[in-house]
Write a protein that binds this DNA or RNA. Sequence first.
DNA 1: GCCCAGGGGGCTC
DNA 2: GAGCCCCATGGG
Length: 226
Amino acid sequence: MTHLLNEIYRQLFQAFGHRHWWPGESREEVIIGAILTQNVAWRNVSSAIENLRKHRLLTLADIHRANLELIASLIMSTRFFHQKARKLKNFTGFLFTNYSGSLDEMFARPTCELRKELLSINGLGEETADSILLYAGGKAVFVVDAYTKRIFSRMGITSEEMTYQEYQAFFMSALKPDAGLYNDYHAQIVYLGHHYCKAKNPACDKCPIRRLCRLGGATLESTPAG
DNA sequence: GCCCAGGGGGCTC
DNA sequence: GAGCCCCATGGG
């Protein structure tokens, strides 16, 4: 499986180039984006980030101090904005209570321990916690998302029934523990999913997934979505 | 107008 | 642990 997963990445890299993820100019912006992007297209997140920037609320310390309803009003474009404003505050509350507001201190924790702590915060599930660990903390943690499940199960490599943890273990047991690789691999998957694997339009002639399907031993015709 | 987008929590059984 | 509902904007 190691060879297959490396070969898939090689072909994605060849097709799309390095994706240079995550979009965000600082670790703090990455964390804020990771929470805001839950179940919403990134374009909706962009305008919310710009709103926060304009109001000088794009740092965790500022969010920690800011009024909850003000935050909610600025991130309205990301859906579920009351919940997400609360989630942002839950994270900053955790950071300031346990690490004096210092990301350096927080990320100095052993990754496994920190992951458990992040998951204990209301509003942070596995994907969000892992995105923070990988993209803000530079930790070698593979991020699984809806596209990962959709694409790899359509390729006949995994089952859609597998849990998040099973998907993560599947990738991490096959790939070398390399944050740079995990970073771009996930970014490639999102790019592929975004451009070629929409829920109701799983394939098109240009889609690299046709080649990838052959790698996975499946054909588009044999997949339920194909 | 309709569809859906990079989730997560809470509740029920 | 699975199956459901809730949250609730904006672009194609």
